[in-house]
Design a protein around this nucleic acid. Structure first.
Lengths: 204, 204, 204, 204
DNA sequence: CATGAATGAGAGTTCATTCAT
DNA sequence: CATGAATGAACTCTCATTCAT
């Protein structure tokens, strides 16, 4: 879907060519897979060679598929982000209680992103790897917010942006030494602060 | 305070001696000032040459005063952190309402550290530039917590560590584009979640 | 020997693969060659850039092949030393007279190492570039010593270590301005002092 | 003697000036003393700052007295060398046996220079810190040689240059790890090779 | 089209020498 | 005339990117 090159060769393309393309696709996939793992473990600052090594391709192949390290990073994160958001959608759809859907989202942010340094960094800094991702995420959060709002569970005045920022801010705690055992408390606190129990208006 | 050499010349100290040292002190100060600014703007990864350029000294001078980049970074952050913590103490002492003292602290974290990338990074990652700083900060937060607790304002089970982590986590929002106008809302939400109004126990 | 990749292509190895590696090998060899020459001329303190320049490669290439200057130095010296020791073995094997074998070794030390500052420095200071080299050299000298001793030609009490030290000490003379024409005399003197003609015991 | 500036102020020079000169002399002496110690311990490559520190003067003062590190090195070594040669003269004069005078000289070279890295380096490389020193040393050795020759103790054909080179070559052994206990043996060997017992001609 | 070797601009750091005080 | 702070070129080494094979 994201890979127009993978389109099935409708005509009788020569096997050699098709083999090449298949190879290329496999390489491309291997690179993204490796990059995702490496970026997750070591963050975005990691040496590109490490990715090449892990994916089993040469530097030239890597740069043929991705014109720059940043491009590869972006694509890898986009993919991760998308998958993550997809799962978030599924979970939310499977959850009837609006508030539980919201808190489930927070939990997912903190459990999933905790193990992906580069992804988490992008989430914290800009809300996601690309503006498109951010938009989708925002839309999803907006839906969650609306569900809670309609159910009268959400504090008056809480915006989608608030929820996005709040989830991002909690992210970092997880990376903190010892944070693995503490984020749940902070999440509880923050979510409680979001409940309609609080009637004080938020500052503009 | 950090500069015994700069001790106020009580009597007519020899100009020659003082002049030399004064210049060196000015350079040292210029370096720290520049470093602080540069680290604040660009983070800890910035090129040392940029600091030398901004402070108007050569590399040798910089390294005469600070034996390594890390030393300079640490010193700059320590200074910033200490100044910040001092102000925090003063504010807290001048505030009668315990809760307002606590929220004032959060506000100060977010207003002051927001504009210093390197400082904020250290605060988020480890709680401060050095273990000593962290200890002092923790002690200060602990005092704030106790005041609120005694006054029955703080949610049961909230630890000092929780407050430290929470303040750190909120920090990052400020750096977010647009975060300058949103952190106050998140702070309110989080603080409300900390209030004794909430009787649900926190997860261990 | 050190280059399994350079193994002779017995069959029609694919040109592409071999071409690449061959080039790399050529570069590697060029670097060692240049390094050997440069170290020989200027000693171990020389700037790495000079080696890169002389070998016609960039710094990156140099560091791709040798992770540090010290590694390059060590490898270069090991190679030189090994080649030299190999030749020494051959000469000794081809020489029937034990005493001539010993004096031939001294001669070889002084003629070969004389023109390699870094190699000579290592020989003088530690007996060779690595402990392994030193051991091999010591073993070789020990064999020479035994041959002479069995033939009753060597002064009583002369140890392998004495011979090693003596050869090393003579080395430096060669580098002296004018030393090129004088070392043969010193060698003769020293060797004569080693002959069994002298029956006085050596100091412990 | 080497310090024309130390000439006694014959006229009634103002005290201030005389005090200055005295101070300057004291500084100069302190610098040489410190430099000598530092060069002896660490060799000629040592940081100039170490010398300034040890002599208790500033860098400016150091460079006022000695326009470059090399000048200071040369002067320090000259002084040491001269003192050493003076002692050598005295010893030789006090020794009746010509051969003992010669071997005493070798012994002095190896005991004295062993503890002075920079001095020894210069002795090994060029025969002394300056050409003048080398000449004086050569002259002294020549006298020793003549005494031995006249007494019929020295091998025919041994030149002054041979003796100088030989003493220099033995020097280095002392610095070798373990060399402290081995140089006496090598010295004995070499000296024995110099004795008139050997009638074979030396190579030209 | 894949390979991985080559590139070279910087990174942090040192030190002989100069110069303002 | 002393001081020691300041200078900056040079050092070893790294890494995103290019290019010959």
């Amino acid at each position: 879907m994201r890979e127009p090159r993978a389109a099935a060769p409708t005509a009788g393309a020569p096997t050699a060519t098709r083999g090449r393309r298949a190879d290329a696709e496999r390489n491309r996939a291997a690179i993204i897979t490796a990059a995702t793992a490496v970026f997750a473990e070591h963050g975005a600052e990691v040496d590109v060679r490490e990715i090449a090594r892990r994916s089993g391709v040469g530097m030239g192949t890597l740069y043929r598929h991705f014109p720059s390290k940043e491009d590869l990073l972006r694509l890898s994160l986009e993919q991760e982000f998308t998958a993550w958001l997809t799962e978030a959608h599924e979970r939310a759809a499977a959850t009837q209680d609006p508030w539980q859907a919201l808190s489930g989202f927070f939990e997912q942010v903190l459990t999933t992103q905790a193990h992906n340094r580069a992804l988490m960094d992008s989430y914290v800094q800009t809300g996601g790897p690309t503006e498109a991702c951010v938009q989708k995420c925002r839309a999803f959060i907006d839906a969650l917010r609306e569900r809670c709002e309609r159910a009268g569970l959400l504090r008056r005045g809480v915006s989608t942006e608030d929820l996005l920022s709040l989830s991002a801010s909690l992210c970092q705690v997880v990376q903190t030494p010892g944070g693995q055992h503490r984020w749940r408390r902070l999440m509880t606190i923050s979510l409680d602060g979001l409940s309609s129990r609080h009637r004080e208006p938020l500052p503009s």
